[in-house]
Design a binder for these strands. Structure first.
Lengths: 364, 364
DNA sequence: CTGAAAGCGCTTACAG
DNA sequence: CTGAAAGCGCTTACAG
């Protein structure tokens, strides 16, 4: 037993059961189950496998099958602040992969620009296909992606040749958010707009404008404020905005690029005693866990993030199954998921009289 | 070119360069670099590899080397609420693995009890070793772990035979937290104690008691309240506790089992107008990102979570390197990291007069 | 110092 | 219906 530290192999199981490795293979993996191996032989093999705690070696199987039964997910998942948006998509991916009996390997990138080359390293046989979470690849980088591995993207920032993209109707989401505010009577609506250059931010601004113009309201460029997409940025930007506008009338509502920004923004308002929704309405975007864990709970635009993650897995597995030859065409239309307005406690009618912006208290 | 959809192999590179696959292997992986392949041949091979975008196939290499250069991490990482504690450890793991040129595969478990068997499936050659994050395995389950894969645990709930455990000095952390409160003058200290049956909770209670007794203060069992370890639980438990004690004197401080609980607890206090730290001091545990992102920022006990994650990788790689034969002894002493008190804004001296607990307002 | 051979553990045609 | 052979892509001894 000098093999105590090696995992049992098919050959070991065969030897134990007095049959060939191949016979063991036949009964231990569904493949050739149909061929009738004598029931008692089958029992003997099963017993031997159990006794030796046999598990098929994944790398050997992958080498023979050209299939690892593992999908990869790449995204900027770690980082200073927790990204609920990515985590919720990831949770949809993990659960769908698991129902398809596929493993999932998560590759953490820090920066799409700099880490693009690493994507190639992942496509070395250890995964059968790769899901890109909110990739920021240039078209040139995307063109260099290995052609032997199928890719699916979620909310890609730019179309990528031969890559299927899954997104949600963000423009319409922004439209729904702002229309809801307008219908409650809001006229002076601030927009914390995410990061300039991000397609998601541009779409929110487009929806914002469309909602105003379809209500016959004027658009005031100065109410669009770039923020990034994190709670910290939401908090900082709101603090700065308030102290830059001390003494002026408070907008009656803020439409935030996502829930994280909305939460940070709410915290900064609370610091100076501005109440949500009594003094100002706040609306978020995404409907992540975070939206339900605040007080007041956040009115927001729901993107079906888990479902989008699941769909990414389904479509990727379809691509993987479609053997070799068939590559997607250069331009492939995106899959677009609908969004919906979720009304909770952070929005209401505007206050009857204008609030003035108080002087900011000093904060650590 | 009917191989367009296959990745280039060593044989392809060799053919392109007019040499054997083996010669290509020698120059493309450091291994036999020493053997002098004529510099111009070497150039030709390098050029061919670049032209064909050759990447060594990970599964073939793993099969030949019995080494995947990938470490696994298993833990209950997803779930309803974000676990900053695990994410911060994970971030230490990812960064150390990356400096060691190792990939990391994350396996998400939902429940240690039920998913213990899945750990076996991960040890099928796809990883070289596995880090268990806060495993809740029984000794019997631990004994069944495959012996051909090295394991390292972080904050295991019970000692596991042959498995190295990395932990922090939680008992001392609790002692430091409570001593700091006592030194400020606090006498009536509530403890939100985590989950009963968890070693971490027991150690916090032990440290709590030791701090009281070494200050000559009495211990009041009724001030120990089980909470779980999430923000939601902290919020709910504090709400319930306040409404169960309406009209009674407010404790002057709460020592919480972790930062998440402290944050939830602070939120519940804010809901009824109790101010931190003016009316009550709050202290957390862990010093995760979350502790610095609240207002007021949280006084807490710092565990070096990232460093602990890195160390887990280092020790695991050591185990992997120590070939076959050498298994760890049955009982292996844990690696214990020190903790420290981080004073921020959520603690201060107790108020000069007793606060009474107000009636809870109704909350969604 | 270099090339041909054998093997990692599995699977898939292909003969008996 | 079952067994022996060849191969997945790489690496590691082992002869020339």
């Amino acid at each position: 037993m000098n093999r105590a530290n090696r995992a049992a192999t098919l050959a070991d199981v065969g030897r134990e059961a007095g049959v060939s490795a191949m016979a063991a293979s036949a009964v231990l993996n569904g493949a050739r189950t149909s061929s009738r191996i004598a029931p008692e032989t089958r029992e003997r093999i099963l017993a031997a496998a159990a006794k030796l705690r046999y598990r098929p070696n994944a790398t050997a199987r992958a080498l023979a099958n050209r299939r690892m039964n593992t999908i990869g997910v790449a995204g900027t998942i770690d980082g200073e602040s927790v990204n609920h948006y990515l985590l919720e998509i990831l949770s949809g991916i993990l659960s769908s992969a698991s129902t398809h009996q596929q493993n999932t390997t998560v590759f953490t990138l820090h920066d799409w620009e700099r880490d693009a080359e690493r994507l190639h390293d992942f496509c070395d046989g250890r995964i059968d296909g790769l899901i890109l979470l909110a990739p920021m690849l240039t078209r040139a980088q995307a063109r260099l992606l290995p052609s032997h591995t199928p890719f699916v993207a979620l909310h890609a920032n730019a179309p990528m040749p031969h890559v299927l993209n899954i997104e949600s109707d963000e423009e319409h989401g922004a439209f729904l958010a702002v229309r809801a505010l307008v219908q409650k009577g809001h006229r002076r609506i601030l927009h914390f707009a995410g990061s300039p250059g991000r397609i998601g931010a541009e779409r929110r601004i487009a929806g914002f404008k469309r909602a105003l113009s379809s209500a016959g309201l004027p658009f005031d460029e100065s109410l669009i404020v770039p923020t990034g997409f994190t709670t910290e940025e939401g908090r900082m930007v709101m603090r700065r905005w308030l102290s830059a506008h001390t003494g002026q009338p408070l907008p009656t509502a803020v439409f935030c690029a996502n829930d994280g920004v909305a939460i940070g923004c709410t915290e900064a308002l609370a610091e100076v005693g501005i109440r949500v929704p009594e003094d100002i309405s706040v609306i978020g975007f995404d409907d992540t866990f975070a939206a339900r864990s605040t007080a007041p709970q956040l009115t927001t635009i729901r993107q079906p993030l888990r479902a989008m993650g699941s769909r990414a897995v389904d479509l990727l597995l379809e691509r993987i199954g479609a053997s070799g030859a068939s590559q997607l065409p250069e331009d492939v239309p995106p899959v677009v998921f609908p969004v919906e307005l979720i009304e909770r406690a952070s929005t209401s009618v505007p206050p009857s009289t204008d609030r003035l912006i108080p002087a900011a208290s000093v904060r650590v």
